[in-house]
Amino acid sequence: MSDTTLVRPRAEFVRGVSMRDAGTLIGLVVILTVFGALVPGFFAERNLINILQQSSINACLALGMTLVIISGGIDLSVGPTAALSAVISASMMVAGVPFPLAIAAGFAIGLACGLVNGVLVAYVGLQPFIVTLGTLSTYRALALIYTGGNPVLGLPAGFRAIFNGSLFGLPLAVVIVACVAVVAWVVLKKTPFGEYLLAVGGNEEAAYIAGVPIARTKIAAYMISGLLAALAAQILIGRLGAAEPILGNLWELDAIAAAAIGGASLMGGKGSIVGTILGAIILGAMRNGLTLMNVQSFYQLLATGLIILAAMLIDRVTRGRG
């Protein structure tokens, strides 16, 4: 009763940037400052661009993951989706298929993988965690079976040039992911679909009564996640020049971490595109800094874990109870 009047509405910090996003930004500034003080050359333009480049693949996956998490679901299958998309695109290119067509095929694979997840969740009514745990193994197995476990080598130089190029001094991969982020932001903030995602994740029963197309909304979220996994796969094989069926191992965990650091709630109904991007950069900057400091990878893993826990604790404390 009366305690409901206690909580003041959360003020919008600047137009479009919530207090929570401001918190994530402060976290990023703190981490950058610490590494800037400890690592000489951390703030060099080249290194900063490096950080963005290293964060771009995770950011790409995390954007899709954020939409799925907002809808009240989770997508554990993004890594294997990427792998399946990568090996099929790559083998088509090696077989001489023009690469725009091969890329399109890769995207189609991503969408199809998401469609399967979405249908199983929305129409069959299975739990997202279990569905995508199942497809995580299935898609990975398909990629391994298709390639016999061998990497697809020798991608055409023309294809590699696309993803290794740069625009306005930024690697093209970074520019692409930035554009995707802007689109995702617009989708979430300015379209009925975005509102439906928040409603379905926030209270599915109420959304249903209000006429929200529940199944379509969920399926669309998983398909976007699959598509962005496929995009991440193209960026990676473009960079490497080869597609391994085991690529993308544990990608889902980094993507979930970025979304959670950015303020997405695994209960659904809550999440931020700006926050997710900042979350991905936090993880990227931290790994970059620790690598430059020659810290063993064991400790990098430890740091990743602690960052996630710290973000959740700060969330909890600042939000108070309930």
């Binding site: 509102e195 439906y196 926030g202």
Partner: peptide, 19 residues
């Protein structure tokens, strides 16, 4: 349970059926 989307604003809750 069936009426409101608790975290969304009054405006968004109002507009949900006529987006």
């Amino acid at each position: 349970r069936e009426g409101i989307v608790p975290l969304r604003s009054i405006t968004c809750n109002m507009a949900l059926a006529s987006m």
